[in-house]
Amino acid sequence: MSTKQLIDIEPINAAVASVDDPEYPGLSIVDLGLVETCNITDDGHVTIELVPTFTGCPALNVIADDVRNAVAAINGVNDVSVNWLLSPTWTTERVSEEGKAVLADQFTVAVQIGSTVSGCPRCGGPLADESMFGPSRCRSVSRCAACTETIEVMRA
């Protein structure tokens, strides 16, 4: 006898949102704008499509493992497939307001959207470019003109 169990998408979404970026503990991958789609079939096959901040990001395997483990733990889920998309491309416009607040408050990281950079996360002062190369492809380094703080800037 087999009973078809229909499960809600909400707990799946919540499980995906519980996964943090491995380099920003406390920042959900949903708030970082990595999650494109999240679907479940009637017989419990979950497919999650993610967008990498950049294709060479070394965290892709780790993030996919974390998502798979979080979702597979939900009752009624048969299998989970996590796919990294080549399109659309990630931009900083995908970072939510909540995400920007976590970056600023927890990590003193500013966000650049287009050519506009948010103010210093500490004092709100204007940031001056120091180097286009930060610790990762998705970050550059600036200095606050007001409080002199060294600031990482997230960029596309």
């Binding site: 060479g56 930060g134 610790p135 060294t150």
Partner: peptide, 27 residues
């Protein structure tokens, strides 16, 4: 490729950390 990606990224991380720390030290 899997390990190579991690080595490339680690290299950039470490150099980037050095960059940030030299700025803080110079200040």
């Amino acid at each position: 490729l899997r390990h190579k990606m991690s080595v490339v990224a680690k290299t950039q991380d470490e150099i980037g950390h050095g960059h940030l720390l030299y700025m803080v030290a110079a200040d």
